[in-house]
Amino acid sequence: MLVRVLESFRKKSDGTIVQAGEVLDIPEAKANVLIEKGRACPAEGSIARWGSPVFGKLSAPLLELREKTFVLRHPITNEVVELSRDWLVSLYERSAILEYDGSLPREEADRQARRDIFNLFRKGEKQ
């Protein structure tokens, strides 16, 4: 997942310093940790790509963070769910529950959590 660094930090792995403004391509689990700590945000162009037997090659933003909201977008219908950033906690909590209780790998738990939150609010009002 591509993330843009918002706050410089030292990597634990090798001690090098990552400067604010850099774009990193890192595993989604590590990216989510940096995003939760406020050290990074999804970079422009941070998208998921996959193949569908019906629709062919597809792509969609993983999560669009805005100043006060975040957006989940359905990759086929382009339907949008925009929620207050307060709901990000619920998204991350759902992901953790799926990972721990559902024994899912972190990346799959994150995908399922996004689907669950999207489906919960897809026909509701903005929160």
Rank of each mutant, 00 (worst) to 15 (best):
Met1Asp: 03
Leu2Phe: 13
Leu2Met: 11
Leu2Asp: 05
Arg4Phe: 02
Ser8Gly: 13
Phe9Arg: 00
Phe9Cys: 03
Arg10Ile: 12
Lys11Pro: 02
Lys11Thr: 14
Asp14Val: 11
Thr16Ser: 13
Ile17Met: 15
Ala20Gly: 10
Gly21Arg: 06
Gly21Asp: 03
Pro27Gly: 09
Pro27Val: 04
Ala29Lys: 03
Lys30Tyr: 14
Ala31Ser: 04
Asn32Met: 11
Asn32Glu: 12
Val33Ser: 14
Leu34Lys: 02
Leu34Cys: 05
Glu36Lys: 15
Glu36Tyr: 14
Gly38Val: 06
Arg39Met: 14
Ala40Tyr: 00
Cys41Thr: 14
Pro42Arg: 00
Ala43Trp: 00
Ala43Ile: 04
Glu44Trp: 14
Gly45Ile: 06
Arg49Gly: 13
Trp50Asn: 14
Gly51Ala: 11
Ser52Gly: 03
Pro53Val: 11
Val54Ser: 11
Lys57Gln: 15
Lys57Phe: 14
Lys57Asn: 14
Lys57Met: 15
Leu58Val: 08
Ser59Pro: 01
Ala60Leu: 04
Pro61Cys: 07
Glu64Pro: 05
Lys68His: 14
Lys68Leu: 09
Thr69Leu: 04
Phe70Gly: 03
Phe70Ile: 09
Pro75Glu: 08
Ile76His: 13
Thr77Phe: 10
Val81Met: 00
Glu82Met: 07
Leu83Gly: 01
Arg85His: 12
Trp87Met: 13
Trp87His: 15
Trp87Glu: 08
Trp87Ala: 09
Leu88Gln: 06
Ser90Thr: 14
Glu93Asp: 15
Ser95Ala: 12
Ser95Met: 04
Ala96Cys: 10
Ile97Leu: 11
Leu98Lys: 00
Leu98Gln: 00
Tyr100Asp: 09
Asp101Ile: 12
Ser103Gly: 12
Leu104Met: 08
Leu104Thr: 04
Glu108Thr: 09
Asp110Tyr: 07
Asp110Leu: 07
Arg111Thr: 09
Gln112Phe: 07
Asp116Trp: 02
Asp116Asn: 13
Ile117Phe: 01
Asn119Tyr: 03
Leu120Gly: 01
Phe121Val: 01
Arg122Leu: 08
Gly124Leu: 06
Gln127Thr: 10
Gln127Met: 09
Gln127Leu: 11
